[in-house]
Measured scan of single mutants.
Amino acid sequence: QWKVGDKCSAIWSEDGCIYPATIASIDFKRETCVVVYTGYGNREEQNLSDLLSPICE
């Protein structure tokens, strides 16, 4: 189960590419979260089910 502060990978809606991110907040009722893309600072809402394991850098 994901928690705030977890590192993950998420698909950015603008280009469909996968980027490393950190979970900033979680809404368990809606099963969504807000991620912050590492190195970019962009925030975006994602479905918890769409999150991927962190990418090894």
Rank of each mutant, 00 (worst) to 15 (best):
I26H: 05
E45K: 05
V34I: 14
V4E: 13
S53F: 10
Y37A: 02
C33M: 06
K7T: 08
I55W: 12
G39P: 10
E44N: 01
W2N: 13
S25R: 01
L52P: 03
G39V: 10
Y40G: 07
E45F: 05
D15S: 02
W2L: 12
C8L: 00
T38R: 03
V4Q: 08
I23A: 03
E45W: 05
C17D: 10
N42F: 15
D15V: 03
N42D: 11
I18P: 08
D50P: 02
I23N: 02
N42G: 08
I26S: 00
E57T: 15
F28R: 12
V4A: 01
C56K: 09
D27A: 00
A24L: 15
Q1W: 10
E31H: 10
E44Y: 05
Q46N: 05
S25D: 07
P54H: 08
G39F: 12
A24P: 05
S25N: 02
T22F: 09
I18M: 06
T38G: 03
C33K: 00
Q46C: 03
V34N: 03
E14W: 14
I23H: 04
D6E: 01
W2S: 11
C33I: 08
S13M: 07
K7E: 13
D50F: 05
G5K: 00
S13G: 07
L48T: 06
D6M: 07
L48S: 00
G41L: 06
I23E: 05
D50H: 07
E44H: 02
V4C: 12
K7L: 12
S9T: 09
E31R: 14
L51S: 02
C56R: 09
C56Q: 15
F28C: 06
E44I: 02
E45V: 12
I18W: 08
R30K: 13
D6P: 00
S49F: 07
I11G: 01
E31W: 06
R43S: 14
D15I: 04
F28W: 15
C8I: 10
T22H: 05
V36L: 08
I26C: 03
S9Y: 15
D15P: 03
W12Q: 04
E44S: 04
Y37S: 05
Y19G: 04
F28I: 11
Y19M: 04
I55A: 11
D15H: 01
K7I: 10
I26E: 05
E57S: 14
N47F: 13
G39N: 10
N47D: 06
K3V: 13
I26D: 08
K29F: 13
I55D: 14
S25K: 01
T32S: 02
V34F: 06
G41P: 05
K3Y: 13
F28Q: 10
E14A: 13
E45L: 07
S53I: 10
K29C: 06
E31Q: 15
T32W: 09
S53V: 10
Y37C: 07
G5C: 12
L48D: 00
E14V: 15
G41D: 06
A24D: 10
I18E: 04
V34L: 06
Y19H: 10
